[in-house]
């Protein structure tokens, strides 16, 4: 429990620090006043608007105010759309989270199944073939996988219509159906990485002394893999999967672009190009929170699966 408490304090400190830094960065660079006024900007008008928006107060007070509002769900007003940022961000956040979680579930299920299949294979030829295929798949970046899947399943097999996003409200089934291939494009590179990891780790474990001990007790290779090597090999794979949840969010930004999914990544990119910094700030802080929380969860999982990590350190 001490372990969790310590990690939790760390987590809170990191969140405060990172959100403060992000806030400062956007305050220094992202001064929107001149842009909002456009051509008719006179020094008086700029000063007046700055006063109105409260840009003249110290950064610390503004940060505290912003953080307080943020916790209450008020993320400010978008410069471009004059809408509350929370109204813009939260529905899209749902879409992105759904996409990421779908990709994550696919990754976990498929990488463990395929990985176990390959590790337990009896035939070296099939094993070799799988390694080669895996090596090729691993080299395809997620965005190209997205394009390939669009081409294959969208244009050739007509399993979905590229570009025609179905919202959850319209049809939940259609929503998840549309997200299936985007999620798969995010999942595939991770799957091949973790399958490879499981395969090579198991191979390494099989060379170790404790496997020789198991053999000296009359165990055969298959049993030694199942009973000893796999347990040891799967620990790093599980922590890799947990951490990859953070990276999947980054892949989402790109994949949403390809499949035209109105998620948080698309909103972020369009807000970046229109220099709508309240929106970007809100999204960045949400993404940062996500990453920090995911890493926290990964840290908490570790002692559960590896008895060597001392919990009360």
């Amino acid at each position: 429990m001490k372990f969790a408490a310590k990690k939790l304090t760390n987590l809170i400190i990191t969140v405060i620090l990172v959100s403060f830094l992000t806030f400062c960065a956007f305050q220094v660079i992202g001064d929107p006043v001149a842009r909002m006024l456009g051509a008719e900007a006179t020094p008086e008008k700029v000063a007046q608007l700055r006063e109105e928006l409260g840009f003249n107060r110290p950064v610390m007070t503004r940060y505290l105010e912003w953080a307080g509002n943020f916790l209450r769900g008020d993320m400010g007003i978008s410069y471009s759309y004059k809408l509350p940022v929370s109204d813009m961000v939260i529905p899209k956040l749902g879409v992105t989270v759904a996409l990421t979680l779908m990709a994550f579930v696919m990754t976990c299920v498929l990488s463990i199944t395929i990985g176990l299949y390959q590790v337990r294979l009896k035939s070296p030829a099939v094993d070799r073939a799988m390694t080669v295929v895996n090596q090729i798949v691993m080299s395809i970046p997620p965005f190209f996988i997205g394009i390939l899947l669009t081409c294959l399943f969208g244009l050739v097999f007509h399993l979905f219509t590229p570009g025609y996003y179905v919202s959850f409200r319209e049809s939940p089934a259609g929503f998840f159906g549309y997200l299936f291939f985007p999620a798969l494009s995010i999942a595939i590179p991770k799957i091949s990485q973790s399958v490879k990891m499981l395969r090579s780790r198991t191979g390494e474990e099989l060379e170790k002394d404790y496997i020789r001990t198991a053999f000296s007790r009359g165990m055969n290779t298959g049993a030694a893999v199942n009973y000893h090597a796999l347990h040891n090999a799967i620990i790093p794979v599980i922590s890799f999967l947990a951490v990859s949840l953070a990276e999947m969010l980054a892949s989402c930004i790109i994949i949403e672009q390809i499949f035209s999914i109105p998620g948080i990544g698309r909103l972020m990119l369009s807000s970046i190009s229109s220099r709508d910094f309240t929106v970007v700030l809100a999204i960045v802080v949400i993404l940062v929170l996500w990453v920090i929380i995911v890493n926290f969860i990964a840290d908490m999982i570790y002692p559960l699966i590896d008895p060597r990590i001392k919990v009360n350190r």
Binding site: V18, A25, I29, A246, I253, I272, V291
Partner: peptide, 19 residues
């Protein structure tokens, strides 16, 4: 550690958004 916890592309996007 803090920097590597974040995906490269995401951080780069944010920094580019600022600068």
């Amino acid at each position: 550690d803090a920097i590597t916890a974040f995906p490269n592309v995401m951080l780069a996007l944010v920094i580019i958004a600022v600068f």
